[in-house]
Nucleic acid binder design. Structure first.
Lengths: 233, 233
DNA sequence: GTATCTCATTGATCCAGATCAAGGAGCGCC
DNA sequence: GGCGCTCCTTGATCTGGATCAATGAGATAC
């Protein structure tokens, strides 16, 4: 994935409905911009109007900035995700690349206008927005009421769902984010996250390979550690 | 607001576009159910499919339940709000009335189908969903990175925005939720919330009248306490 | 291959907010 | 209008995770 055309084609095939007319495709093309981001770089976008982003390839984090230099990671995104960057309000937001990323950006208002005649696009936007809201609510519960161990377990399970490769009863993960990113996402410190990893490793629930490799060995036990509701035993 | 007809009319006038045809209105009527909830009662809804709720009148809280009996308030809603109750996943959710409430409920999937021909309804659904997501993200930052005092200040400011009555430079609030609800919303305990109220009162930033009355005396100072980004000084 | 630099782990101490424990005040009920 | 109950406030103590402080291990550059 390198050229602007590739990126746009990727957007077309994954977001627009199958038999979208060529004139509509052309309309979206005039609205969208292709951006390549290197790791640790953040997307520059107008802070007074929301922007729609389609992540063609890569992984990003959405970060909220409070006063001081405190940061909270609101969400991680992976290849194929569609997300809305809010205009800055009481806090400011940035989208930062975790690895090399290709994305398409659209001014939200104009995109919406273009989509109005194609309710399948609207429906999809709504659907994806609902999934984001759902994830955000789970995060709220995690941050509001869970212990460090529960947070880290929840995090691993959620990553397993999104980027895990199942191998028998195990799930392999290649985490694109650093311990700092995980800590900022879970409302913890690097040290605490590291200690929970060690704890889970010592209990035989996970194995780690290098900085980014994690294998979940006992998903059932992790579910219990995560404080999830017992599925009727 | 008491009869089923009143409630549905309220929904029609606040959610459906102005010149919606009578046959469409009739369609939505067949999908919707009117429910009255007394304080502390919760809405019963199928746990395997999402439900759309329009709050005609009253105030509610959306609560997530983790294992043990820990609860996290995900959001408060007030008259005129439209919200989506997710199907239960790793956690379960309930919608509970804070005061007497009238609401209209719709099966989400069927509502969406009915709305497909009316992209104004879709657009509105999307818009409201985006606002919910935005609020949820602010909450994430609050729960992840803010101190008790910052959380309570943020909470008061957010309530001021939604249900405050401005009187000169002051804002009057009549909070429909208990200290317990506030604590469960901010990831704190009742005691800590109470102590922050006392602190803010002692600093002359708020005045309290009885259990539910709060007057914000210094919105600017509260903004500072809330850890909001300084508006270019 | 190895030097170096960054990121992760581990250990020691500290503190904000939880927990435990009484009082006090508002509000509904009779 | 006062009785009683619930919710709120205040105080004392405890603790999980933050902070401070070294190591240790992976990745990158040469």
């Amino acid at each position: 994935m390198h050229t602007c055309t590739d990126a746009f084609d990727c957007f077309v095939s994954r977001v627009l409905p199958k038999r979208t007319g060529p004139e509509t495709v052309r309309l979206f093309r005039t609205l969208g911009s292709h951006v390549h981001l290197k790791p640790d770089r953040h997307l520059h976008y107008p802070d007074d109007e929301p922007t729609l982003v389609f992540l063609c390839d890569g992984a990003t984090k959405l970060v909220a900035h409070a006063s001081d230099h405190r940061e909270q990671v609101l969400a991680f995104h992976f290849t194929g995700d569609l997300l809305t960057l809010p205009a800055h309000g009481a806090h400011s937001y940035t989208l930062e690349a975790l690895v090399d990323c290709d994305l398409m950006t659209f001014p939200y208002a104009q995109f919406l206008q273009a989509a109005e005649k194609h309710q399948q696009v609207l429906t999809q936007l709504l659907e994806r927005s609902t999934v984001s809201l759902q994830r955000s609510r789970e995060k709220t519960l995690t941050l509001g009421r869970k212990s460090a161990l529960e947070r880290v377990s929840s995090f691993l399970l959620s990553m397993a769902e999104r980027i895990g490769r199942g191998e028998g009863s195990e799930v392999k993960l290649d985490l694109p984010m650093s311990r700092k990113d995980i800590a900022d996402s879970l409302g913890l410190t690097i040290e605490t996250v590291s200690r929970q990893f060690t704890l889970l490793r010592d209990q035989g629930l996970i194995r780690t390979q290098g900085r980014s490799g994690v294998t979940l060995l006992r998903v059932d036990e992790l579910d219990r550690r995560a404080g999830h509701l017992r599925v009727a035993a």
